[in-house]
């Protein structure tokens, strides 16, 4: 009994010191990274917003488009969704001394409506508006004039054109890495998110899961730029889309397993156990691929030796290192 208490206190000490090393600057809270509502409110109030270019629209939105949030713009064709998107990509770049954010923009175009000549026009219009608003400042600081060239505005938009939904998912996954390298990106515009998902998806449930996975990813990106497990390597190999989507779902824990169905409140009956092996393990994502004896025999039949790590990611990277990467992926996919 005594020794157990001793061990426990040792462990606690170790954890404490580790926490101090990692994040000693956190002022309050039990957990690292926790914030109280007051902090959040003052954070939010000090945030700058991206102006939409229209006073009325800004006041509806509470100052403009918010950072750290995902905003959806919907409407019938020709109502001006693309125009608003391009306008935002320009407005985010208004320099700080003129009351803007001075950031950069990522524009993901699925429909091909991004017309560079139109972007140029909007950039020109934006500059002339800045001149009208800040004539005195413009006179004082002539150095600012060099900033205000439409060419500079165009140069600070990163433009991705995607032609299929696999590419779209790949780009969104790649964004994590991209944002890690380009810290000054302040807005990501996707025009439009659903275009490629309106074809080829007979299975509506699958579509919903892929889309909700994407939106979760986007929300995470918008909150913080931390880099998680990089998934972009999956998409580099040629294989059928079905398998690509399957693997992507698998890595994001969105496969339609029984425990997933249960989490979604779908009635699965009393039998929650794996249908492939007879041992009484619930059919979930981890079990199905690793400890399930049936799968084990599958893996070994294609010549992949799995280690006995419990953590999925280390397991995968371990296998990826031992087998040649291309071979492994081909087999895996």
């Amino acid at each position: 009994m005594n020794t157990e208490i001793q061990e426990a206190s040792d462990i606690l000490k170790v954890i404490e010191s580790a926490n101090k090393l990692k994040g000693a600057e956190e002022p309050s809270g039990v957990l690292r990274g926790a914030q109280n509502a007051w902090d959040l409110l003052s954070d939010e109030q000090s945030q700058k917003h991206i102006t939409t270019g229209s006073g009325d629209l800004n006041s509806i939105l509470g100052g403009g488009i918010h950072c750290k949030e995902v905003t959806e713009i919907g409407g019938v064709p020709g109502v001006g969704k693309t125009q608003l998107g391009i306008q935002l990509a320009i407005n985010v770049q208004i320099p700080v001394e003129y009351g803007g954010l001075g950031g950069k923009a990522v524009y993901i175009d699925t429909e091909g409506s991004f017309m560079v000549e139109r972007v140029y026009q909007i950039a020109e219009g934006c500059i002339s508006d800045i001149m009208e608003y800040f004539p005195y400042r413009h006179d004082k600081a002539s150095s600012g004039r060099e900033h205000l060239q439409p060419e500079r505005f165009l140069a600070d938009i990163y433009y991705f054109r995607v032609c299929s939904y696999t590419e779209q998912i790949a780009v969104i996954n790649y964004l994590e890495k991209f944002l890690g390298e380009h810290k000054d990106v302040r807005i990501i515009i996707i025009d439009s998110v659903t275009f490629h998902f309106r074809q080829d998806f007979d299975d509506l449930a699958l579509r919903t899961r892929v889309l909700s996975g994407l939106s979760l990813k986007l929300m995470k990106l918008s909150k913080t730029y931390n880099v998680a497990l990089s998934l972009s390597w999956i998409w580099r190999y040629r294989c059928s889309n079905k398998l690509e989507v399957f693997v992507w779902l698998f890595f994001n824990d969105r496969l339609n397993t029984k425990d997933m169905q249960e989490r979604r409140n779908i009635f699965v009956g009393d039998d929650r156990f794996c249908v492939l092996c007879n041992i009484s393990a619930s059919e979930d994502h981890d079990h199905l691929f690793w400890p399930c004896p049936f799968r084990r025999s599958c893996w070994s039949s294609i010549g992949i030796q799995l280690g006995s790590h419990s953590d999925l990611n280390t397991l995968i990277s371990g296998v990826k290192d031992t087998a040649s990467a291309g071979l492994f992926s081909e087999k895996l996919l």
């Binding site: 990522v106 524009y107 991004f114 560079v116 000549e117 972007v119 140029y120 060419e151 165009l154 140069a155 938009i157 990163y158 433009y159 991705f160 054109r161 995607v162 696999t166 590419e167 790949a170 780009v171 790649y174 991209f178 972009s232 998409w235 580099r236 040629r238």
Partner: peptide, 13 residues
């Protein structure tokens, strides 16, 4: 399919 690469609108102008 390769790793996505951004394009520069300035060069497309």
């Amino acid at each position: 399919q390769q790793e996505p690469r951004p394009e520069k609108p300035l060069l497309l102008l």
